[in-house]
Amino acid sequence: MSEKHLVCQGAICSCKFGSAPDKLTVLTQSKRYINDKDGSQKLLATHMDIGKTFEKNLFGSCAKLNNAPCQVVVTKWSGFYEKITLQDNSGKALLEDSKATCPIGAPDCISIINHGQIMEASAQNVENAEKEVLMELFPFADLHQYIRKTDMLDAKN
């Protein structure tokens, strides 16, 4: 089984009957963050995020409504991760291949284009990195101050 990413606030979703994507908004819990070093932006999305749970609640024009504006309302999610249940909302974590159902569209007509997680380096990542690797990755950066600082720490230990 290949590795699948958990979905978070800001994930990009689309409907196979819509003409534009929209961003997922987590409204059912406010404590569980992922992929967010400050714990302030990337709430974990769950199968309980139903209803009007998108930033614009609009996937452009809807082919099922003769190209009238989409009126997305999620009635249920499928393909979520059964092994994680949040205490806050009894929700199961959404995965990047989870699908949602809209009553106007069809079962599983909404899919996740991008899970919403982004790679973000923190100071701890830099501190834990090997000096030689940092020098290879950032050949023009002045890392001597960082290297001297870590060398002094290593010498003390």
Rank of each mutant, 00 (worst) to 15 (best):
K23D: 00
M119N: 12
F138D: 03
Q29W: 01
T46W: 02
G60W: 06
N57L: 05
F138T: 03
K37C: 08
V73W: 04
D108L: 02
W77D: 00
L143W: 15
K37D: 06
V73L: 06
L65W: 02
K64Q: 09
D22P: 01
I34K: 07
N66F: 10
E96L: 05
V72T: 13
A100E: 02
I112F: 00
L24E: 00
K42P: 02
I12S: 06
I34Y: 05
C15K: 00
K76C: 07
D97S: 05
K76H: 06
D97E: 08
N89S: 08
Y33A: 03
V126H: 08
L6D: 02
K56M: 08
A100F: 00
P21L: 04
K42I: 04
P69A: 07
A121L: 15
D88T: 11
L143C: 09
V7G: 01
I12L: 12
F138C: 06
K52R: 10
L44D: 02
G10I: 01
V133I: 13
V126P: 05
A106H: 11
L24I: 01
F54L: 10
A20D: 09
H144P: 03
E3I: 13
Q29K: 04
N125A: 07
P139H: 11
E55M: 12
K23P: 00
G91N: 01
K64C: 07
K42M: 06
G79H: 06
A106T: 12
G10T: 05
S90D: 08
C13I: 00
